[in-house]
Computed example of a mutant assay.
Amino acid sequence: MSAGAALRADGSTVLLSQFMDELREPRTPYISSERFARRLGLSKDTLARMAGVHRNTLRTNPGAEALQIRLREMIKVIVAASQFTRDIDKALYWFMNEPIADYRNRTAADLVSDGHLEAVLAYLEDLGNGATG
């Protein structure tokens, strides 16, 4: 069972597991920045900027700790959002495009890129507890 499968006990377990498998760099323990960029519909330069690393890092040091940490943060938010959307593609769309009024209409991608992972997770938790978004 992959780490993604352990995240959910309901029917979306398979979808999350498949999503995580899609992002894994073959024969390595890390996330493929190239696969992740493709899944988000981004250029590698844009993903590097969002991750706060030099664009060459994606090619020359794809397992760099700073890069992997930021990619895991992005995935954490997407997985949390998928609990509401019940669909990875909808969660990806929300992450990249939906403005969050409580955060000056910035997207979750913008906020995570700027180091505000906990704020986005708290927002999603508030939604789960009945707050209106």
Rank of each mutant, 00 (worst) to 15 (best):
R59A: 03
V77S: 06
T57W: 03
L127T: 06
V14A: 11
L92W: 06
T13D: 07
T13R: 08
D110Q: 11
D110W: 04
R8F: 06
E73C: 10
Y93N: 09
I69A: 09
R72C: 05
L42R: 07
R104P: 07
K76T: 14
V14G: 03
H54G: 02
A122Y: 15
S32D: 12
R27M: 15
Q83G: 15
D110N: 07
K76S: 13
A5S: 14
E34Y: 09
S113R: 02
P29M: 08
R70E: 09
Q68Y: 05
A108E: 02
S82F: 11
T46Y: 07
L121Y: 08
T28R: 15
E65L: 07
A131S: 15
I88E: 03
R38E: 11
M74R: 02
G115S: 04
M74Y: 04
S43H: 11
R39W: 09
N105L: 07
V53L: 00
L117W: 14
R72I: 04
L124P: 09
L127G: 05
A80F: 13
L121T: 03
E65K: 08
G52R: 00
L42H: 08
I100N: 03
A131G: 12
L92P: 07
D10L: 02
R86W: 10
R38F: 10
F95I: 00
D45Q: 12
S32H: 09
A9C: 01
V120C: 07
D87L: 04
D114Y: 05
L42I: 09
A66V: 09
G41R: 05
A5M: 13
L58M: 01
F19K: 03
T60Y: 00
Q68T: 04
E22D: 15
A64N: 07
A80E: 13
N129W: 12
D45I: 13
R106Q: 06
S33G: 12
L7V: 11
D114S: 11
A131Q: 14
L15K: 12
H54I: 05
T46G: 03
S12W: 10
A81Y: 03
N61F: 01
E125I: 04
R8Q: 00
G133M: 15
L40Q: 04
T85E: 12
I75Y: 03
R104V: 10
A37E: 03
H116S: 12
M50P: 01
T60K: 02
L47M: 03
